[in-house]
Measured scan of single mutants.
Amino acid sequence: MALNTPQITPTKKITVRAIGEELPRGDYQRCPQCDMLFSLPEINSHQSAYCPRCQAKIRDGRDWSLTRLAAMAFTMLLLMPFAWGEPLLHIWLLGIRIDANVMQGIWQMTKQGDAITGSMVFFCVIGAPLILVTSIAYLWFGNRLGMNLRPVLLMLERLKEWVMLDIYLVGIGVASIKVQDYAHIQAGVGLFSFVALVILTTVTLSHLNVEELWERFYPQRPATRRDEKLRVCLGCHFTGYPDQRGRCPRCHIPLRLRRRHSLQKCWAALLASIVLLLPANLLPISIIYLNGGRQEDTILSGIMSLASSNIAVAGIVFIASILVPFTKVIVMFTLLLSIHFKCQQGLRTRILLLRMVTWIGRWSMLDLFVISLTMSLINRDQILAFTMGPAAFYFGAAVILTILAVEWLDSRLLWDAHESGNARFDD
């Protein structure tokens, strides 16, 4: 018995066209964080690309023209004298008006014999932002004059995390709450300039795509075929072959399989920071003279006294001054041990922890910024005066060393310790 099946006739004509040209192939790229070699397709503007294995951002879609970056830099340069030299806060102490600005706080630190601690604050609040705007201006002028731009481009990517104007702005709020127990506070004209400078700096850093600047100024022929001998440069993120001198053909720094002496430098910085954190938390970090009496505060006791007036601000200072430094030390110690013992479990967790400490590390400088600003506000000789204690130097040095330890660690070593050939990683 035959089955009668109805015929289905399409209502619209289906047209099949042959592909007349070869589909576009992607360029081969190595991930600078996990060293995976993959094919990167062509990316349009405002599109980002991520590593298929570790999800690290390979290409950032946010990109401004150099002219727009230069305009932002010149605007920031105009704001800087007002943000640093004009009063941020006014207080009335014992019937006398006192003005506080950024430069005055750094000068008070240096004047009291601790120039190293003052230079830490100076670099993060004044030096690094000033280098940022002058570097962008150098790129703008240098591109037109045919100057060598490689050193500036190499420095810009590392400079971003040292620009800490946003953290200093939080420190202004913390210092205001600490001082309000002794005097009446009012915002100064410099505060508005400083807030504007923070906003412009944040926007500029978020749109400063150094890798795209490398592509514009020093374009290189990408690798179009897969080759395990391809290496990625950690300076400019170019994937290719080393030249005859073993250097990256684009930025001219040595092109090595792994960062040289990464573990040794990381261990040295980490152990030194552990040693410095002990006096930083045991010795007094601030000293207040009130009517001839002397009151010393460690980091913890200062947080407890701050909690009596504002528990939320005390929580912020606790996280930045105690929780973050010790968390960074514990995480980095764990990561280094996992590399030495070739741990194969929990790779995803370790990668996330490394990215976390990379982002939060700079916030530990908050305590030094609060001390710097408070020193310029309260300084009335023996009637009422505020000065920093010996722990300030140890704390600042420990924070900087932990930042350097994270920067010096080559994250690809975590993958080397893991089993080879993993296309995915999980716990």
Score class of each variant (00 low, 15 high):
Pro10Arg: 14
Tyr138Ile: 07
Ser338Leu: 10
Ala70Gly: 14
Leu66His: 13
Phe217Ile: 14
Asn4Trp: 11
Glu161Met: 12
Arg250Ser: 14
Ala175Gln: 02
Ser119Lys: 02
Arg53Glu: 10
Gly127Pro: 03
Phe194Gln: 12
Leu263Glu: 06
Pro6Lys: 10
Leu40Trp: 10
Phe38Pro: 13
Leu37Arg: 10
Ile8Cys: 10
Val174Gly: 11
Ile131Met: 02
Gln345Lys: 13
Met332Phe: 09
Ala423Phe: 06
Phe194Trp: 05
Gly190His: 03
Pro219Leu: 07
Val329Ser: 09
Val370Tyr: 00
Ala70Lys: 12
Ala100Thr: 11
Leu130Tyr: 04
Leu277Thr: 04
Cys124Pro: 06
Gly315Lys: 04
Asp60Leu: 12
His340Trp: 07
Ala71Pro: 01
Gln382Cys: 06
Met304Cys: 08
Gln382Ile: 14
Trp92Leu: 05
Leu66Gln: 05
Ser273Thr: 10
Pro222Gly: 11
Ala187Asp: 08
Lys111Thr: 06
Gln108Ser: 14
Gly396Lys: 00
Ile339Lys: 09
Leu413Lys: 10
Ile322Arg: 02
Ile98Gly: 04
Asn4Arg: 09
His261Met: 08
Leu282Pro: 04
Cys31Gln: 00
Glu21Arg: 10
Ala49Lys: 04
Asp60Thr: 11
Leu94Glu: 00
Val189Ala: 08
Ile177Arg: 04
Val275Glu: 08
Gln47Ser: 07
Leu191Arg: 06
Ala175Tyr: 01
Gln220Asp: 04
Ile322Tyr: 04
Thr201Pro: 05
Ala391Trp: 01
Leu300Pro: 02
Ile43His: 13
Leu132Cys: 07
Leu3Trp: 12
Ser135Tyr: 01
Phe217Lys: 13
Ile311Arg: 03
Val210Asn: 13
Asn101Met: 02
Met80Leu: 07
Ile96Cys: 07
Leu368Tyr: 03
Ala320Asp: 10
Ala320His: 01
Gln344Phe: 14
Leu200Pro: 04
Val133Ala: 01
Phe38Ala: 05
Leu69Gln: 10
Cys31Ile: 00
Ile299Leu: 09
Ile253Phe: 01
Leu145Glu: 01
Gln29Val: 13
Thr204Gln: 09
Glu22Thr: 11
Val174Met: 15
Gln7Phe: 07
Trp415Pro: 05
His46Tyr: 11
Leu93Ile: 11
Gly85Met: 06
Thr387Lys: 05
Ser372Pro: 02
Leu23Val: 14
Ser206Cys: 15
Cys343Met: 14
Ile116Leu: 10
Lys57Gln: 10
Cys236Ser: 01
Val163Asp: 05
Ile98Cys: 04
Asn281Gln: 12
Met109Gly: 05
Asn291Lys: 13
Phe386Tyr: 01
Leu282Tyr: 08
Thr327Ser: 12
Leu139His: 01
Val121Gly: 07
Arg355Ile: 09
Gly95Ile: 02
Glu42Ile: 07
Gly389Asn: 01
Thr117Phe: 02
Pro52Gln: 06
Met365Leu: 05
Met1Glu: 00
